[in-house]
Amino acid sequence: MPNTKNILIVGVGGQGILLASELVAKVALSKGYDVKQSEVHGMAQRGGSVSSNVRYGDVVYSPTIARGEADVLLSFELLESLRWLEYLSPRGVAIVNTQRIDPMPVASGKAEYPKNIEEKLQQKSHALYIIDGQRLAEQAGHIKAVNVALLGVLSTILEFDEKVWQTAIKNRVPAKTVDINFKAFNLGREAVSRN
């Protein structure tokens, strides 16, 4: 559907991708949109490649995003951003975390980690944000807050105001981590203005 917004969130199992996409979906729902969110469980904890589709609009039918139609590609890992790049629309925005996680073929010396990833991303995205999510999360107070820091970046591109995001985060994360997550979220937002 033409007015549907497509957000593809990708990375490696264990990086907090499913929580991030759940938050995006909840934010869209709270603004009255029809929402579909789709991911595949099962291998998520085993270090495999993970992708989650979030789509919102007046009416959303398909749970998955077609290649070339993602408005935003939010990638938690460099190699994965390249793997899913074909899903990004030519008018789309890529937000890419600088973390590198070697897959088994690379870790065992059987394959090479691709080079010049930034260049390739630059060529194929309308706008590109390269974000050191680890550093933002550490600044916020916990390395696990990378996903919320990256959501902070995403929030500057989407139409929803800060308050809605904060409510969604507050309702979802453990109470004692709310402050850290708010801080990570804000650092993500600030990172965009510096980028």
Binding site: S62, A66, R67, G68, R83, M104
Partner: peptide, 30 residues
């Protein structure tokens, strides 16, 4: 997928650039 149905029924091909071979990321024992 919507893409596949569009291609096979309407004949509309999705033209996407190829990335070349990337190292796979199979799930592994933890």
């Amino acid at each position: 997928s919507p893409e596949l149905i569009r291609e096979r029924i309407l004949g509309v091909k999705t033209d996407v650039p190829q990335n070349g071979e990337l190292p796979g990321r199979p799930p592994v024992m933890c």
